[in-house]
Amino acid sequence: MSASATESETSEQPVPVSDSQTFHRAFKDLRDGLRQRELWLSLGWQDIKQRYRRSVIGPFWITIATGVQAAAMGLLYSALLNIPLKEFLPYVTVGLIVWNLISASILEGSEVFISNEGLIKQLPSALSVHVYRLVWRQVLFFAHNFAIYIVLLFAFSIWQNMSWTALAAIPAFVLIVANTLWVSIVFGIFSTRYRDIAPILGSLTLLLFVLTPIMWTTQALKDQGGQAAERVKLAELNPLYHYLEIIRAPLIGTDQQAYHWYIVIALTVVGWAVALLALRKYRARVPYWV
């Protein structure tokens, strides 16, 4: 065989292309992370045990801290807004419990890869393992705080106002957890590359806490009429308001509008599209950025 023929055959062979920046690898990372659930379930539980090591009541300090904060806010703002405490305290408490889950996904999610630098560089695991670990830990915190709601459910007779629509809180919680996943992925990747994003998110989250109806209600603004009622429209521009409403309304037995669900579902789809794009393009670079 001549040298020219050999060179021709070699040139005709397809050049192997790396699939490190493909959607296949992005989905594979998410699937591999789910398969390693024993790892992130154990790590998430160890995070809580480590934080409250040698404490007498352990992670129930989370419940006490949240309960005290909710009680203080409920007592103060019910007087300021002239809303009966029986109505306002459950409203504030559920809002605060859900807010803690959402804000943690933003704040801790922005540092999820930075804080796991050692594991990322030394442990051969999917990148999504660290995201699952973070979300699992926050779900455990949510479960501890949910005990406060159970107490209020009977102490304030909330159950009397509830119907079968209260079951809507279950898919609402699933939707919120799905959103905490993509939020942690997106902010985690970009905050690893650009370290200024994390402190910016810290300030933004504090601002959103004030602008989100947790310590105040949109109904109180509507009752004031005039310009105050017009500000309700501004509140609805805040996406976190809709996340709160899909789970808070069924839990406290109040009416709920369907458009809250439409907005949250749309944001979930868009958010996961951005997360998959980020995983596709930057997943392989995260170990170098940390």
Rank of each mutant, 00 (worst) to 15 (best):
residue 75 L to N: 14
residue 76 L to D: 13
residue 76 L to K: 11
residue 76 L to A: 15
residue 76 L to M: 15
residue 77 Y to Q: 04
residue 77 Y to G: 11
residue 79 A to S: 10
residue 79 A to K: 14
residue 79 A to F: 12
residue 80 L to R: 10
residue 80 L to C: 12
residue 82 N to E: 13
residue 82 N to T: 13
residue 82 N to G: 12
residue 82 N to S: 14
residue 83 I to N: 02
residue 84 P to T: 04
residue 85 L to K: 06
residue 86 K to C: 07
residue 86 K to R: 13
residue 87 E to V: 10
residue 87 E to N: 15
residue 89 L to F: 12
residue 89 L to N: 11
residue 90 P to T: 07
residue 90 P to A: 09
residue 90 P to Q: 10
residue 90 P to D: 11
residue 90 P to F: 04
residue 91 Y to C: 02
residue 91 Y to L: 02
residue 91 Y to M: 08
residue 92 V to C: 14
residue 92 V to I: 13
residue 92 V to A: 14
residue 93 T to N: 08
residue 94 V to L: 12
residue 94 V to R: 09
residue 94 V to S: 08
residue 94 V to A: 05
residue 95 G to M: 09
residue 95 G to S: 10
residue 96 L to V: 05
residue 96 L to Y: 14
residue 97 I to V: 11
residue 97 I to T: 13
residue 98 V to T: 13
residue 99 W to E: 00
residue 100 N to R: 14
residue 101 L to H: 12
residue 101 L to M: 14
residue 102 I to P: 04
residue 102 I to K: 13
residue 102 I to N: 01
residue 102 I to R: 03
residue 103 S to D: 09
residue 103 S to H: 03
residue 104 A to T: 03
residue 104 A to L: 07
residue 104 A to K: 15
residue 104 A to E: 14
residue 105 S to I: 00
residue 105 S to W: 08
residue 107 L to F: 06
residue 107 L to E: 06
residue 107 L to I: 03
residue 107 L to G: 03
residue 107 L to A: 03
residue 108 E to C: 00
residue 108 E to A: 06
residue 108 E to W: 00
residue 108 E to L: 01
residue 109 G to N: 00
residue 109 G to Q: 00
residue 109 G to Y: 00
residue 110 S to M: 02
residue 110 S to W: 00
residue 110 S to P: 02
residue 110 S to A: 15
residue 112 V to S: 00
residue 113 F to Y: 05
residue 113 F to N: 01
residue 113 F to D: 03
residue 114 I to W: 01
residue 115 S to T: 02
residue 116 N to W: 01
residue 116 N to M: 04
residue 116 N to D: 06
residue 116 N to K: 01
residue 117 E to P: 00
residue 118 G to Q: 06
residue 118 G to K: 12
residue 118 G to W: 04
residue 119 L to H: 13
residue 119 L to S: 10
residue 119 L to Y: 12
residue 120 I to R: 08
residue 120 I to N: 13
residue 121 K to I: 11
residue 121 K to Y: 09
residue 121 K to R: 11
residue 122 Q to Y: 12
residue 122 Q to S: 12
residue 122 Q to M: 06
residue 122 Q to C: 04
residue 123 L to K: 07
residue 123 L to W: 08
residue 124 P to H: 03
residue 124 P to Q: 00
residue 124 P to I: 07
residue 124 P to A: 06
residue 124 P to C: 00
residue 124 P to M: 02
residue 125 S to I: 11
residue 125 S to E: 12
residue 125 S to V: 15
residue 125 S to D: 02
residue 126 A to Q: 04
residue 126 A to G: 06
residue 126 A to E: 10
residue 127 L to D: 00
residue 127 L to Q: 01
residue 128 S to W: 09
residue 128 S to F: 06
residue 128 S to N: 10
residue 128 S to E: 07
residue 129 V to I: 12
residue 129 V to W: 08
residue 131 V to T: 08
residue 131 V to S: 02
residue 132 Y to D: 05
residue 132 Y to E: 04
residue 133 R to T: 07
residue 133 R to M: 06
residue 133 R to P: 05
residue 134 L to Q: 04
residue 134 L to K: 04
residue 134 L to W: 02
residue 135 V to P: 06
residue 135 V to G: 08
residue 135 V to A: 05
